[in-house]
């Protein structure tokens, strides 16, 4: 499973950064969410949280 982000949907709220246990998500005010794929372990906590459904786990 890989974490995918749709920054067109992302609302820059920052919730995913706060819940990420790996500290692998960065919020850029313009570009949106950036994921450090090397650190991400696809736990999905950010996916559950995201109020905009901008984050998804894909096979």
């Amino acid at each position: 499973m890989v974490l995918k982000v749709n920054n067109d949907k992302c609302l820059r709220c920052g919730g995913c950064v706060s819940v990420c246990p790996q500290a692998c998500i960065d919020l850029h005010e313009v570009k949106g969410i950036q994921i450090n794929k090397l650190k991400c372990n696809s736990c999905g906590i950010c996916v559950t949280f995201c109020p905009a459904k901008a984050l998804v786990l894909k096979k």
Partner: peptide
């Protein structure tokens, strides 16, 4: 703010 990373970089685990 809520997406604080500075504290984590500094060494306080603020993950909620």
């Amino acid at each position: 703010g809520v997406e604080s990373k500075i504290a984590r970089m500094a060494g306080i685990n603020t993950t909620n």
